[in-house]
Amino acid sequence: MKISLTVNGEKRALDVKPETRLLDLIRDDLGLTGTKEGCGKGECGACTVIMNNKVVASCLVLAAQADGAEIKTIEGLGGKDKLHPLQQAFIEKGAVQCGFCIPGMIMSSKKLLDENINPSEEDIKRGLSGNICRCTGYVKIVDAVKEAAHKIKSGGEENV
């Protein structure tokens, strides 16, 4: 069946099966493999994307349910020519180890900072509570989110 949606600002029209997951659409049909599958059951958060301004586990959303939706993935945040402050902060604070959880972590962080640019440590932990890092680098990840908030505030709108 045919659906259309906007992914990272680009309008896409695709043919999907009813059982195609949003994650499969993003990775297989659109080739945006920055979004990862870790468990397929909404437990790990590696597949987190922003859908209509909400964080979702794209493994638990049917592609058909994203018909007409606006999706943002890690690729839509910033490339190496112009890194998003979150990406920059994750690099600087050493928050990246194996890296497999990082796209999901950054998307959850993005949503968190979109809503609250002055998050407390508790706010950050709650905002990232759906994302697991098995390298267990949580301290530096929390540091990176704080640093990104600082960067965004001091850099003004254009940084975001």
Binding site: K2, I3, A13, L14, G31, D67
Partner: peptide
């Protein structure tokens, strides 16, 4: 590094054209 992958856009909209998926 990733090789660029060429994905062709297909035309169409709606999502109501399947006999396996209903969205009243």
């Amino acid at each position: 590094k990733k090789q660029s992958i060429n994905v062709k856009n297909k035309l169409g909209t709606s999502g109501k054209d399947s006999d396996k998926y209903f969205r009243p």
